[in-house]
Amino acid sequence: MHVHVLLFGIIADLTGESKISLAIEANATVKNLKTLLKEKYPQLNSYNTYAVAVNESYALDDVLLKDSDTIAIIPPVSGG
């Protein structure tokens, strides 16, 4: 299956990407996606202080992904 991944802030700068499509095995979790991202972007090995949102809601590591989900990689926020 494929998921859409949005990257923001310093993570977009580190990876040079703001939006990618990723192929990932069925029944993958948020944790699996994080591992895949680190393989694709080794620079994320030294930067792992980010949260993940699935379809615009914060999601913990054990959340299951579905085909066509939109995943956001959210470095520490600094609004206000």
């Binding site: 923001f8 959210i74 470095p75 520490p76 926020v77 609004g79």
Partner: peptide
């Protein structure tokens, strides 16, 4: 999920990154 980047005379930095 909002981020601010500070712009200085000599560069820029993501706040709280």
């Amino acid at each position: 999920p909002i981020w601010k980047k500070e712009h200085f005379e000599d560069g820029e930095v993501w706040v709280n990154a």
